[in-house]
């Protein structure tokens, strides 16, 4: 499925499009968000079937409010359309792989 950008109107459908979905709440001015983005792009190049949904909190403040996102980056891990885990801050590639292994396999 690759990387898709969500708005308030598309979010719910996007997180249900696949059995396992990673959601990245970010803002363009946040340095750690850029680092996390690079890790996610590396994973997407290797695992093109991975579903990654990105939410720009400045462009979709209603989603940030709905999910009480007070700081970015914040990651959500969905399995079967259900939010299984939320994580505040950057996860490195090994930590992301560990989540993929846990929820996808």
């Amino acid at each position: 499925m690759s990387i898709k950008f969500a708005e308030a109107s598309t979010f719910d459908n996007l997180v249900r499009e696949d059995d396992f979905v990673i959601v990245d709440f970010f803002s363009t001015s946040c340095g750690p968000c850029k680092i996390l983005s690079t890790f996610l792009e590396d994973l997407e190049a290797e695992l093109p079937f991975l579903s990654i949904v990105k939410v720009n909190t400045m462009e979709a403040p209603e989603l940030a409010e709905r999910f009480e996102i007070h700081a970015v980056p914040t990651l959500f891990f969905y399995q079967g359309g259900e939010l299984k885990e939320r994580h505040l801050g950057v996860l490195d590639e090994d930590e992301l792989r560990e989540r993929i292994e846990r929820y996808l396999y």
């Binding site: 803002s27 001015s29 946040c30 909190t57 400045m58 403040p61 940030a64 409010e65 996102i69 007070h70 700081a71 970015v72």
Partner: peptide, 9 residues
């Protein structure tokens, strides 16, 4: 101001 406030929501 806009950029500094954003990460705090």
């Amino acid at each position: 101001l806009t950029e500094a406030a954003a990460p705090w929501g």
